[in-house]
């Protein structure tokens, strides 16, 4: 190319423009070939690209260091430790129920948000919204079914998780407090399900919630019909049941309250407790086992409330 440039030097003015274009096109062809080859080579290793690195922040090679980093440097994955006990990944120990519970919570949040697009928490609209959702919204029925059955499944999974944690003695030192957080999470799970029950505003939900909240009437001291309630001046218009329902009967206010508890307050509280729960699983040294069995002869002669052993944070 340098050669042809020299040859045409004299007649530059007349043929300049055309030649320039021709020359540029040839150059462009070359560039295309060269850079295209580079690009194709790059596609073979997407993890080296700027885009990938900007998202995932670390190199992704098959080295132990990077395997660890890919977990630790990712906000979603860093709930996990970089490494786990080789026996702890077996299904037969944890039954995976805690993780399944959490996954179902995510599924419920996702389907729940979609349901919220179609639902108005008012006596006039609520029931019709469900009919509309079931009959006219594409995949509306599937959406509602998934939300419903995922909620039931989550309750079963929480119970089985608790059952597993108990039977492996995982509530013992140092995990006592995480067990307590777990108990609260189970209560929140049940309350989530219960508040959702009223939202379709059908007979099933209405009577279930009526039966349920009637019990609040009997709260000692704070309910009209509870022990000493009347003595303390409780009436159907100022007791705990009234506070729960926003009225003395299950009606429009109760629907709105159930909606807000169900869609905002309880999910928020449960999320906070879940964050705590997962954080404590890590700080308490990861999953409890399968641990080496301990023998009766190895019990140390300690008694009662022993001081808690504080570990430097981050030490597993």
């Amino acid at each position: 190319m340098a050669e042809s440039n020299g040859e045409n030097n004299g007649a530059k003015k007349s043929t300049g423009l055309l030649d320039r274009v021709r020359q540029d096109v040839t150059e462009l062809k070359e560039t295309f070939k060269e850079k295209g080859k580079e690009e194709l080579e790059g596609l073979k290793e997407p993890e080296k690209s700027q885009l990938f690195r900007s998202v995932f922040r670390v190199k992704h090679d098959e080295t132990p260091r990077n395997r660890a980093l890919s977990v630790l440097s990712n906000v979603f994955f860093h709930l996990h430790p970089a490494k786990v006990n080789r026996d702890a990944v077996k299904y037969k120990y944890t039954w995976g129920m805690g993780g399944i519970t959490f996954y179902l919570f995510i599924v419920l949040t996702f389907t729940g948000v979609l349901l919220m697009f179609y639902y108005h928490p008012s006596k006039v609209q609520a029931f019709r919204d469900i009919l509309y959702l079931e009959n006219d919204v594409p995949f509306g029925k599937l959406l509602r079914n998934m939300h419903r059955w995922a909620a039931h499944l989550m309750i079963i999974a929480v119970w089985l998780h608790m059952f597993r944690v108990f039977l492996t003695g995982s509530y013992k030192r140092p995990r006592e407090f995480n067990w307590c957080i777990g108990v609260l999470l189970m209560v929140l799970t049940l309350l989530l399900s219960f508040t959702g029950y009223l939202l379709p505003d059908d007979q099933l939900g209405f009577w279930a919630v009526t039966v349920g909240t009637n019990m609040a009437r009997a709260t000692p001291l704070l309910g009209t019909e509870g022990p000493f309630g009347a003595l303390l001046g409780m009436t159907p218009y100022n007791d705990v049941r009234f506070a729960l329902l926003g009225g003395s009967i299950v009606d429009a206010n109760a629907l709105l309250r159930a909606y807000i508890w169900h869609c905002i307050a309880i999910p928020l509280i449960a999320s906070i407790f879940m964050a705590l729960h997962f954080w404590r699983v890590r700080k308490d040294g990861g999953i409890s086992g399968p641990a080496p069995v301990m023998l009766e002869s190895e019990i140390k002669e300690e008694k009662g409330h022993r001081p808690v052993v504080l570990r430097p944070s981050g030490l597993q």
């Binding site: 108990f166 492996t168 003695g169 995982s170 509530y171 013992k172 030192r173 995990r175 006592e176 407090f177 067990w179 307590c180 409890s288 086992g289 399968p290 641990a291 080496p292 069995v293 301990m294 009766e296 019990i299 140390k300 009662g304």
Partner: peptide, 13 residues
């Protein structure tokens, strides 16, 4: 439960 169970055995298996 965790605070009244004084049995140290069976922790993690």
């Amino acid at each position: 439960i965790p605070y009244i169970d004084a049995n140290p055995l069976g922790n993690g298996y």
